Simulated assay, not measured.
Amino acid sequence: MNILIIDSQRVNYVGPGEYVSGAEQQSYSLEVTSQASDEQLSRADGIIAFHSVVIDASLVARMHRCRALVKATIGLDEVDVEALSAKGILCSNIGSVGAEEVAEHAMALILFAQRKLFDYARHTRQGGWSWRAHTGEIKACGDTVLGLVGYGATARALARRAAAMGYRICFYDPWVERCAEDIAQCGTLESLLEVADVISLHLPLTNDTENLLSDACFSRMKRGMTFVNTARGGIVDTKALLRALQSGVVSMALLDVVQEEPAPPQALLEHERVLLTPHAAFYSERSLAQLKADALETMLSLLNGEHVKSVVNTDCVSVEAKGYA
């Protein structure tokens, strides 16, 4: 079995020599590239693609013997699943690897904003020494409503951390009716927007969620709220967010992802109340190793005909039946 690994051109996930051929009894070969050639694509039985590698119809058309594609991410917004299905290629992600790390990153961003650390750091660098040198109010965690938009593995991990610190937590998720741990209250998106002091996004990017956070949503938020996004940049209309910052509805935006990755607009980069991190929330040494191990394990299971829960197109017909053999 030939497995092709397409690494990100933006930031390499695979280290030099990491997938050098192993033991002789290994039943598969691995090849790593960041720019897949026609020859590499045509001989691959399975393809693993990392974040920012776009799997579109033109790329799929060059996959002549591929039986499975694994996107080494949680989301599949960069994948044309329909094109893969039409060619009988199974498509899978890798579930919730890095959920704890993303939750920790989001919690750090929330506390950074809540404790006015940006203001204090700037004040002391300028020679000041006053605890009053901040904008807006500083609330105790127990007086703060944290709203989670989406309540999957990452949001639940964040909720556990926030609950331990005393936050009052509400969430909106059309697929989740209640919090099993009873630490967060379920409600509508509209009610969450109106009551939350801090809003943190934890949704996948789909046709339904693209630009979900628009002028209409920002207009319903509490004035002076804190906005956090560690999910996908495309969920937020950047221009609407900038307008909300300008009007004072959003006091601070803390973003690990943006709509325009990897080149955020200057208006975000230079805004004094915006903090950007480079899509790093998933990362720890452990999570990166787990991500790669899970991607390879998922691929081997698919190529060996085993059941994989994370496959999103289980009803796609075989390659032979579609005439692509």
Rank of each mutant, 00 (worst) to 15 (best):
E181Q: 14
R160L: 06
T188R: 03
W175M: 10
L193T: 00
E194S: 13
T144E: 03
Y151P: 14
A162I: 11
M221N: 02
C170M: 09
I199Y: 01
D173C: 01
S191E: 14
A196D: 03
F227V: 06
V228E: 04
R161K: 14
N207E: 14
R178A: 13
V176T: 12
T209S: 15
C186K: 10
L201I: 14
L213N: 02
V228F: 05
V176I: 15
G187M: 15
R220L: 12
G187L: 12
A180K: 14
A155N: 10
N229F: 03
A196P: 02
G150I: 05
K222D: 01
G152D: 00
W175H: 11
R220T: 01
W175S: 09
M225T: 11
C217H: 12
R223D: 08
C186M: 08
R161H: 11
G224E: 08
L192H: 01
L146I: 08
Y167F: 15
C186P: 13
C170N: 05
A216S: 15
L146M: 08
D173R: 00
K222S: 03
V198F: 00
V145T: 15
R178W: 04
F218M: 01
E210M: 09
D173S: 03
L146R: 08
L158V: 09
T226R: 09
R220C: 07
E210D: 05
Y167R: 07
A163S: 14
V149T: 10
G147F: 05
R156H: 10
R160F: 03
R220V: 01
G224T: 06
P204A: 06
N211Q: 13
V198C: 00
R223C: 10
C141L: 10
D215G: 07
M225G: 00
S200K: 03
G150P: 06
Y151C: 11
C141H: 13
T209F: 07
W175A: 13
L203C: 02
L212W: 12
R160C: 04
R156M: 14
L213E: 03
C186G: 07
D143G: 10
I199M: 08
L213K: 05
R156S: 11
L189P: 07
C141T: 14
L213V: 09
A184H: 01
G142E: 12
N207G: 13
P204G: 06
L203H: 03
Y172M: 03
G152Q: 00
L189S: 05
G166T: 09
L203P: 04
C179H: 11
A180W: 06
H202L: 05
A162V: 07
P174E: 04
A184R: 00
L146S: 04
E210L: 05
D197P: 08
D197F: 07
F171W: 03
L146G: 05
I169H: 09
R223H: 13
N211Y: 11
S214I: 11
M221V: 02
D182C: 10
E177V: 10
A180G: 06
L146C: 08
C141G: 11
M221S: 02
C217G: 08
V198T: 02
L205H: 02
Q185F: 01
F218P: 00
A164H: 07
V145D: 10
R220M: 10
M221Q: 04
A180V: 09
E190D: 15
A153F: 02
T144C: 04
P174C: 04
A163E: 03
A159F: 05
V176C: 12
E210C: 09
R168H: 14
I199C: 08
I169G: 11
D197S: 06
